[in-house]
């Protein structure tokens, strides 16, 4: 991975983390707020494939875990799974306008399921009580709304850094 590409990853992930804690989490919307960091991970997976999705997901997830009070590694695991799946989908489908929205929808659901699954294994009372309530459905919907603002921008930035990206 080239230096500029590494810099792009670090800059976008840190920006997304900051915006998530300062802006997204305080948006006066009903239900859980959107997860900008997850949408960013999915955008990288769409632009560069599953490997990029997984690595970005792992690093961004760990940083997000540090900003929370659940066990470390839970969001990292959820984002890795979502990043992998999103990267794989793009592999065998032609680009269509609708695809990014569907990928973000599926990725957000997959991440929540992975997060909840680990919660069940650990016996986390938070997962047992409110697993997949309407608040979480709202969060998934907000993630899809973020798609047109995040996915094209990440795609553009990735192509600027490496005009002919090899999908890995």
């Amino acid at each position: 991975m080239s230096g500029p590409r590494l810099l792009l990853g670090a800059a976008t992930v840190l920006t997304a983390l900051l915006l998530q804690t300062t802006v997204m989490a305080r948006l006066p919307v009903p239900g859980s707020p959107p997860d900008l960091v997850l949408v960013l991970v999915l955008a990288f997976a769409l632009a560069e494939g599953p490997r990029s999705g997984m690595v970005t997901g792992f690093v961004a997830g760990l940083l997000a875990d540090l900003q929370s009070d659940h066990e470390l590694g839970r969001l990292a695991l959820a984002y890795v799974v979502a990043g992998y799946l999103a990267g794989r989908v793009q592999d065998d489908t032609d680009r269509s306008t609708l695809l990014p929205f569907l990928v973000v929808l599926g990725g957000a659901v997959a991440a929540l399921l992975a997060y909840a699954a680990v919660g069940l294994v650990l016996g986390d009372p938070r997962t047992a009580v409110s697993a997949l309530g309407p608040g979480l459905a709202a969060s998934v919907a907000y993630d899809v709304v973020l798609t047109p603002f995040v996915v094209p921008v990440v795609g553009l930035l990735v192509r600027r850094v490496d005009p002919d990206p090899v999908r890995r």
Binding site: T22, S68, D69, G119
Partner: peptide, 8 residues
């Protein structure tokens, strides 16, 4: 701040 990464 409200918890930003607390899905549940």
């Amino acid at each position: 701040g409200y918890g930003a990464f607390q899905p549940f």
